[in-house]
Design a binder for these strands. Structure first.
Lengths: 301, 301
DNA sequence: TTGAAAGCGCTAACAT
DNA sequence: ATGTTAGCGCTTTCAA
């Protein structure tokens, strides 16, 4: 009887070997989530969203941290490929070539937060242009005259789109969008700090800044504090994406907020749908952003 | 010749199937790092330390987030077991039973940050008693009279040890270590907030607090801000473990700092040594902590 | 209902 | 130096 087998299983504490099972079925129950900076709370919140959906669908989520390093990213992609993971959710560091392998190997892939050029796959984004426009317009509306922008690496779609939103806002307020108010940094704190320093040291410095991610915003504010520049009285700051404990920071930071958890959920839903039906055409989900006005952009009149 | 095979491999874009390889060799090149809260920057820094060593030793690191939930933790342990991962580094949510399976299955396991009761395995810790004593003594030395303690769940070793260090410091300053100044919370922000509220609402409220992790410290400070209690003039605060951007928070937070990155490195080294030599007796590495004095504990005289 | 066997893709041992 | 084969533990198909 089957009952006796069950009994024996318990007695011997039998655990099925998933490796053999995976080999036989040529599929696993593991999803890889490859993110570009584990130190950025944006990604950690997103991962929670992915996890909650994945658990419900019977998958386990393993996290891989590429640290914005294309080489580490490649290594993790290779691992996901070699282990024949059931699916991959990736926020790329910007090199499209390596990811193609996954797509070619017919492993379901969803791009999250950042677009993948050259391949047509499921994608979950926020409306970066709109968010950046919101932030810049807000600064202009509060009486700041020369709004600068600290953005990320050109190859990363969010950096490019947020810059575009900034430029669009300037133009619609009849300001010229000059290059000398734009700095390209690395989406990290130190990069934000250096970019801010460079802006302050320029010939005709700005009186406010829009930084295109949370860590660079922190770096920029640190620079302003170090130089004794008063925020928001002398200088306005708006960032893209919140930081935790934003309310404990003085001055508290105005930011473009993103639905990070829902971003993760949406990606997970797309991935499970693609696994269920590999033939369906890829779709793109775009979530909208909101402006959180706090102290750093509210110039006293 | 071998050269012709190499050539064919390239032409066909051959990728070895790691699943089959794992089955044959009954081992993988994947380490699982199971952490209890991905939202806590303490763990993210630790993971970086693990990763850097692992990469050097030819392993890839996948991260699993148990969110302090024993059930999720069990699921990930089961996955690590089923996938026959090469090793596991775990910061447990406190249930010893499930982890035994890993040990019984002879999968190399290293406990990090939190001790595992009942099993004798490689462990990496910080000197929690010493750090807590440092923090409490510092508050007493700065003229605070009634020092409270917000600690974590009893079953977690760090919570117990930090509480012990607090009690020891009180006794060596001839203060009674009374239970009504101690609160057990959950190592999260909301828990810290509620514990602080409970302390303030008690009959004989404290004039300072030592919180045993970073998130609860943030929660406690939020509560103090909401109640209009002046830190540090009316109330002193010291936390255990730093938060990012501690310098941007006003008042800036005094904390017991931990070598988080080195903690990860040490665990990774222990794990790779155990993989190389499964027979060696388990060892425990204890790293020391330091006191970062900032504004929140410096009462103006 | 229960049993037997093939084969997933790889590696290691053995034979040529 | 090159070729052949057994077997890792599972699932699926086919046979009894």
């Amino acid at each position: 009887m089957a009952a006796r087998v069950q009994q024996a299983m318990r007695e011997l504490d039998y655990r099925p070997n998933a490796v053999a099972r995976n080999l036989r079925l040529s599929q696993t129950s593991l999803w890889a989530v490859i993110i570009s900076d584990i130190g950025n709370p944006f990604f950690t919140s997103m991962v929670r969203g992915v996890e909650d959906v994945a658990q419900g669908a019977g998958y386990s989520v393993v996290l891989c941290n590429s640290d914005e390093d294309p080489e580490k990213e490649s290594r993790y992609i290779a691992a996901a490929l070699a282990e024949r993971m059931a699916g991959v959710i990736i926020s790329t560091s910007g090199r499209p070539t390596v990811i193609n392998r996954l797509v070619e190997a017919r492993i379901p892939v969803v791009a999250i937060d950042r677009q993948l050029r050259g391949v047509n796959i499921d994608t979950v984004l926020v409306d970066n242009v709109q968010g950046a426009e919101l932030a810049t317009t807000h600064l202009l509306g509060n009486g700041y005259q020369r709004v600068a922008c600290i953005t990320g690496p050109r190859r990363i779609s969010t950096a490019a789109q947020r810059l575009r939103g900034y430029q669009r806002a300037l133009r619609s307020h009849a300001r010229e969008a000059t290059d000398n108010l734009v700095r390209y940094a690395d989406f990290r704190e130190e990069g934000g700090y250096r970019a801010m320093a460079s802006l302050l040291d320029s010939d005709n410095p700005p009186d406010s800044v829009f930084a295109t991610n949370n860590l660079m915003t922190v770096g920029a504010v640190e620079c302003l504090v170090d130089r004794g520049v008063k925020v928001p009285a002398e200088f306005g700051v708006v960032g893209f994406d919140d930081i935790p404990w934003a309310h404990l920071v003085r001055p508290s930071l105005s930011t473009v907020s993103q639905p990070t958890y829902d971003l993760g959920r949406a990606a997970a839903v797309l991935l499970s749908e693609r696994i269920a039906n590999p033939a369906r055409p890829p779709s793109t989900v775009t979530l909208s952003t909101g402006l959180q006005v706090r102290e750093s952009s509210s110039r006293p009149s």
